[in-house]
Every structure is written in C-alpha cells, then in structure tokens.
Amino acid sequence: MTRIGAAVIGAGVVGLAVARRFARLGLETVIVDGEADFGTWTSARNSEVIHAGIYYPFGSLKAELCVRGKKLLYDYCYARDLPCRQCGKLIFAATPGQGVALDAILAAAEGAGVTDLRRLDAQEVRSLEPLLGCHEALLSPSTGIIDSHAYMQSLLGEAEDCGAQFARQSRVTGLSRRRDGWGVHIDGEAEPAAIASLVVNAAGLTAHLLARQTQGLASGHVPQVRYARGVYFTYSGRAPFSHLVYPVPVPGGLGTHLTLDMAGSARFGPDVEWIDEIDYSVDPARHVGFLAAARLIWPELEPERLVPGYAGIRPKLSGPGEPAADFMVSGPQDHGLPGLVNLFGIESPGLTASLALADLVAEKLGLGWEEDIDASR
C-alpha cells in the first residue's frame, strides 16, 4: 500500500497553497480532488478580489489572516510577475443615512489593523470616479484584483516542482485511522488507496461531509454548513471605472458590487440566495434585479450589455439573520486526532488569506511558519 507524507484533499486555492507549503518542507505530498482540474468550484467562481481585511471582527481569523495574507499574496505575485493590480476600492454611501454604516466599517477596519482607509466626500469621489454618484465613501487603497487561475497554476507548479503529485478525478469518501497515519479512501472503496501521515481536509463545499466520514472524529467537531449562492452578471464592453465599487454591506454578503478583471471588464454581483444543494445555475430572469442594483453604481449603463455570467457558492457556518461566522481551522489541539486538520467555512476572504491559511495549517501540525514567501523555491 502506498505511504505518503501528506494528503491534501481539495485542489482549490487553499488546498494548493497548503500543498505547496508541505512540498517545500520536503513532505511527500499528494493533492487529491474529484474533479479533472484544479480550482473548479469556489476558487474559480468568485470576484478575484484581494481584500484589505476591513469587514471582519477584531480578533477573528478572517481579520488576522486576511491582513497577513494580503501582504503575502501581493509579495508572491510581484516576485513571480503574476497578474494582479492594486487598484483600490470605494465603499459608497448612497444616502446620508448610510454614513453610519461607513462609520462601523471604518472602526472595524482599524480594529483589524487596516489603517489606510480614507473617508471621501462626494466631490472627492467624483474626482476619482466621475460617474459614481454618492453622498460619501471610503477609499481602500490596498484592495486589488488577481488572476486567480494564474495564481493557482503557480501554486500547483511550485508544489509539483518540489515533488508533489496531483491525483485528479479521485473523490475522497472517507478517512480511516491507522496506527501509522490516515487511510485515504477513494470513491467508496473499503481499502484505502494510500496511508498518509498528515491529512488536510480542504474540500470546501463538501469538507463537512468528508469530516462526517472521518473515523474517530466526534460529531461536535463537525459544524453545520449552509450554502449561499451568489450570482454574477457581466457587462459586455469596457466599464468606465478604475476602482472596484461596493455599496455598504447587506445581510449575508457585501452587496451587489462592481469588480473588474485584469482586462478591465466589469461584473456585478454577487447577490445572496440560500440554497440546499450545490447548484451553479444562473436564472436570466434575475436581470431585472441586477439592473436595478447596477444602476445604483452606474446609472448610464446600457441594459442590453448586462448579461448572465456565472454563480459561486459559499460554504457558510452561519445562516440567514445570524452573526457572520469565522473561519474554522480545526487541528489536533482542537479535536484530539493527530495529523489531521479540517478547514470549514472557508469563504471570502479565503483567496486573499490562502497563503496565511497554509501557514496556519502548518502551525497546527507543528511544522512552523514560512518566512521566504518571495522566493520561487
């Protein structure tokens, strides 16, 4: 039977960052995913935004890892000439009454260690974005955008350069405890395909389902996960904006916002819809609601150019009307099982925090933190 140093389950951006981290430490690492390619779920269906860390409660993992991860991610991309741009973001109050929401955002950001936000009046906003009408706004200069596919390709390439292997179309359906590690079971097979000394469950939307099939893991260490689908509509044609533009947040998300890709194309979204099953469908009938939300940002946009784009799904640890939950990174110190880390609720800002999350996973397993993120090896 094959014995390996580490199995990373899930080839999304966090799983790839963890695998790269392990491989650089010299661990014989296998990335296992049920799909034919990497990053086909949550990691490929988001806004590709490098977040500044301004929305998350002081002391939370989201706040800590987003702020740390943002720096790591920019350094990583700049050192490798990967496509990214620190374009900045405007969070706008459409009416005077929404100024209170900006107050709360500013206070939370400063508490989380984000000290570069600037408050702008309507005239200052128009000097940056002439077509954005609002009462006032916050400017986040360290927010940016990234080509998430290029980033994931780089993570996988560096992991493979250090000896990691990518086991595609191999769905992990269970983990069994062994005297010398963890049995990794593929596609319901009774016998494990490999024995791994370390296992990281980074399966994203299905991490909780795999955790339920992990021998010895008490049910109290497996959270309830809810799915929140967010739909995006894209705009065919170049948008006259150079910054990302966000309204004040709404329950369950950050509101329908305008983001840009590396080519300058615009997309609006995501909205928030609570669903029970993984379903990426986009209903064209949602155009009416998206048009109304988009016109709050860009009143002059041409309606026929706003077309259905794609949908993403967030694995959330809190439901409608509940306080937003933190990331859950559960290691041996938490659940009592050696060599196992489970990651639950890794939604936004998971892309931004990916390298910092990889460090935290390594720390949970006693492997320490990485200091040379700028190096290609």
Rank of each mutant, 00 (worst) to 15 (best):
residue 2 T to L: 14
residue 4 I to W: 09
residue 8 V to H: 00
residue 8 V to P: 04
residue 12 G to I: 00
residue 15 G to Y: 05
residue 21 R to D: 08
residue 25 L to W: 12
residue 26 G to S: 14
residue 27 L to D: 09
residue 31 I to T: 04
residue 31 I to P: 02
residue 31 I to Y: 03
residue 32 V to M: 14
residue 36 A to M: 07
residue 45 R to Y: 13
residue 55 Y to D: 09
residue 58 F to H: 12
residue 59 G to T: 04
residue 60 S to M: 11
residue 61 L to T: 12
residue 62 K to G: 05
residue 63 A to F: 03
residue 64 E to W: 10
residue 64 E to A: 15
residue 66 C to G: 04
residue 68 R to A: 05
residue 69 G to L: 10
residue 70 K to C: 14
residue 74 Y to H: 07
residue 77 C to P: 07
residue 79 A to H: 14
residue 92 F to I: 05
residue 93 A to T: 02
residue 94 A to Y: 01
residue 98 Q to K: 12
residue 103 D to H: 07
residue 110 E to A: 12
residue 111 G to R: 03
residue 125 V to R: 00
residue 126 R to A: 15
residue 133 G to I: 07
residue 137 A to W: 05
residue 138 L to N: 01
residue 139 L to T: 11
residue 148 S to K: 12
residue 149 H to G: 03
residue 154 S to R: 13
residue 155 L to S: 06
residue 156 L to A: 12
residue 159 A to H: 01
residue 162 C to I: 07
residue 164 A to C: 08
residue 169 Q to N: 15
residue 170 S to Q: 12
residue 170 S to N: 13
residue 171 R to E: 15
residue 172 V to W: 01
residue 174 G to Q: 05
residue 175 L to C: 13
residue 176 S to P: 02
residue 178 R to H: 14
residue 185 H to R: 11
residue 185 H to W: 04
residue 188 G to Y: 14
residue 191 E to G: 06
residue 193 A to R: 08
residue 195 I to C: 13
residue 195 I to P: 01
residue 195 I to N: 06
residue 197 S to Y: 05
residue 198 L to F: 15
residue 201 N to C: 06
residue 201 N to E: 06
residue 202 A to M: 10
residue 209 L to N: 08
residue 211 A to L: 10
residue 211 A to C: 07
residue 212 R to K: 15
residue 213 Q to Y: 11
residue 215 Q to F: 10
residue 217 L to A: 08
residue 218 A to H: 10
residue 218 A to M: 12
residue 221 H to A: 07
residue 221 H to R: 11
residue 222 V to T: 03
residue 222 V to D: 01
residue 226 R to Y: 14
residue 227 Y to F: 15
residue 229 R to H: 07
residue 230 G to V: 10
residue 243 H to K: 13
residue 244 L to T: 13
residue 244 L to A: 08
residue 248 V to C: 10
residue 249 P to A: 01
residue 250 V to S: 14
residue 260 L to D: 03
residue 263 A to V: 03
residue 266 A to F: 08
residue 267 R to S: 13
residue 273 E to Y: 05
residue 275 I to H: 00
residue 275 I to S: 02
residue 277 E to T: 15
residue 280 Y to H: 09
residue 280 Y to D: 10
residue 283 D to W: 03
residue 284 P to R: 14
residue 290 F to V: 03
residue 297 I to F: 01
residue 299 P to F: 08
residue 299 P to Y: 09
residue 301 L to S: 05
residue 302 E to G: 05
residue 303 P to C: 13
residue 303 P to M: 10
residue 310 Y to M: 00
residue 311 A to R: 08
residue 319 G to S: 13
residue 323 P to N: 11
residue 324 A to R: 09
residue 325 A to D: 06
residue 326 D to F: 02
residue 329 V to M: 15
residue 335 H to P: 09
residue 336 G to I: 04
residue 339 G to R: 09
residue 340 L to V: 06
residue 347 E to N: 11
residue 347 E to H: 12
residue 349 P to Y: 08
residue 353 A to V: 09
residue 354 S to H: 02
residue 354 S to A: 09
residue 357 L to W: 09
residue 360 L to M: 12
residue 361 V to H: 01
residue 365 L to N: 02
residue 374 D to R: 13
